[in-house]
Write a protein that binds this DNA or RNA. Structure first.
Lengths: 207, 207
DNA sequence: ACATAAAACGAACGGTCGTGCTATTCTCTC
DNA sequence: GAGAGAATAGCACGACCGTTCGTTTTATGT
């Protein structure tokens, strides 16, 4: 099917444009021009602007997952994998996977008070992301690498905040040390909570 | 002058709308309808959309400053004032000073990769804000409340990130504990760096 | 190679955008 | 309270928005 290939190339570009101009700033005419196709030809792949936005978010999520999670799945469960996820996020920022900064940070702030299907999806995606962070924190607890008193939801909140902070400092303020600052804060926070390997006890229990 | 009063009422509304729909989503026609005046009558106060956006940002900054900074200036310099600023920010979030969440968090992520006068102004505003945070951290060092090894730019980065994180968690994820999470993280971070007044040491337990 | 279905196009629609211009209405000052 | 000047309204323009529809091109299966 040729259609599927075209659709994918549209979405690839749409993701980049949306990371730069926002999901609402993404327009069908402009996208069509950039891809040298007609507005109506492009439009036919989606049926509405909202559907295009939704498909764009889904495409961005695929990129996000494959850039951040796929590489760390081979890391050993627990603390090492948690650190790997954080490093992976910061590397994803450094590599400029989306030209306008983290797609989901931008979409989160763009749609945080705009009811509709798009907002609902953005929220679901971010719930998944925070949920994944929490899960990896819990795994580290189960492996005995983090104390049981650590609140996964609290720690996930803090780590995510530092990531968004890095995006802000890097893309708006053009602080070349933005990512190092986030890295430093993340490392200090995690190491402060870590149970040192020598004295680490294995406490494999399902919560 | 009547014009000045009208202009102010336009900007009051513009700030609210922009916090909800973004500075780009703010349109002259819609704003005129809401204020029951003509597009051209409203437009005449500014001369261009970009000027309206810039005036809106300046109006939002006034609100920001009067809601966050003015109340804390009577706090004693140093650690108490630094804590007061943080508390004040979180209270500002809790009170819903802008209906769509922190105006500047939204504007920061909307314009972080959109060259132009608007972006330049948003950036200057955020530089000022971070600068103010850094200054209050340095004051606390000068007063001997924080160790000299603390890097003001690093700490300001972290505090700001936690504030933005609260905005994200509260407005997109509707987490009613968002602000408490940020508060907890901020308090823990600051207390960890604090040099306890010699005579006033007391045991504190944190849940 | 041909029939058929999929994909892309071109033109047009009603709306809204930002922005001019001119005319009218209101508000201050004397 | 009248005249001057500021403030607002009315209307039109061109550009672009998302969307529809009928046509033409291109790809696919036999």
């Amino acid at each position: 099917m040729k259609g599927e290939r075209t659709r994918q190339s549209i979405l690839d570009r749409a993701v980049d444009v949306a990371s730069l101009e926002g999901l609402e700033g993404l327009t069908i005419g402009r996208l069509a021009d950039e891809l040298k196709m007609s507005k109506s030809g492009l439009f036919a792949h989606f049926g509405s602007k909202e559907d295009l936005q939704i498909a764009t978010i889904e495409a961005a999520a695929q990129r996000y997952i494959s850039e951040i999670f796929t590489p760390v799945l081979q890391q050993p469960r627990g603390y090492p994998r948690l650190v790997a996820i954080c490093d992976s996020w910061l590397s994803y920022m450094r590599r400029g996977v989306f030209p306008g900064g983290c797609f989901f940070a931008a979409a989160s702030f763009e749609f945080d008070s705009r009811p509709g299907l798009v907002r609902d999806l953005v929220r679901r995606m971010m719930d998944d992301w925070i949920g994944a962070l929490e899960r990896s924190i819990r795994m580290a607890q189960e492996e005995g690498h983090l104390g049981a008193e650590v609140d996964p939801s609290q720690l996930a909140f803090e780590l995510n905040a530092l990531f968004f902070g890095a995006n802000f400092d890097f893309y708006l303020r053009n602080d070349t040390n933005a990512i190092e600052k986030a890295e430093k804060a993340v490392r200090a926070r995690l190491e402060g909570l870590r149970i040192e390997p020598k004295r680490a006890r294995k406490m494999k229990k399902t919560a």
